[in-house]
Amino acid sequence: MGRPTRSWKLYVACFYIFLFAPLAVVAAFAFNASQYPSPPWLGFTLEWFAGNGAVFGRPGVLRDGPMLASLLASVKVAIPVAALAVALGTANAFLLERHEFPGKALLANMMLWPLVIPGVILGISILAFSSRVANGLEDLFDADLDFLRPGLPLVVAGQLSFILTIATLVISARLRRFDRALEEAARDLGAGPWRTLRTVTLPYLRPAMVGAGLVAFLMSFENFNTTLILVGSEPPLPVYMYGQMREGASPALNAVSLVLMLGTAAVATLFALVSRKAD
């Protein structure tokens, strides 16, 4: 069993082909000079990236207004989600690692719940609750509270509800390994608690905070289920792509997918470099 048999090796090889085939065809057909992302191969083109629509009747992704707007919407969601996840995740880490209090085990356990709740359900529950609050406040004060209605702020809240769990786990894990003697040394040298935190503890946590931020950014950018429920009139990229994919196939989708994959690869590489530095 230890020495791999030929058929076992063959199986593993097939597995990796299975793993990469979908991504390979998405990338390849972004360059096919055809109306449809399907064989036969009609020649190489960059029209689906930079074209102005003269050749295929549809502009390349870099000149496609609605597509770029959805990309922008995704960025507008992902940046606050990542920033809030890091800030609140760090606070959670200090609470869980530095304080003892009744109900702590329960609280730590509850923080994991969002991981086992399907995204669609997180979405509908937050939508139902925020609508109730908005209706109540409107009846009481006659105020329009747009941020409680479907739209990007609600998408941020919905995504944060589970991405914060990931950030908390990542940052807590690093804080747990921190040697408290370093803080005591700083205090002995005359630093106050605030200065100790700023010059000793937070710099130690930085790799985990950057890593958590990058992962949060990616998870937010790629989230579909929760976003679909909470989205208003500005669809982020995954929701926009879903609508386009329902309407029909176009190599424009391959092109934007390739752009997305390259962007993700860049962020993931950054993450790998940061986490290597952390260990």
Binding site: A21, P22, N254
Partner: peptide, 11 residues
């Protein structure tokens, strides 16, 4: 690391 939408498009 690729989006679910991208993987589904591939299939």
């Amino acid at each position: 690391w690729a989006s679910e939408l991208v993987r589904t498009l591939g299939w």
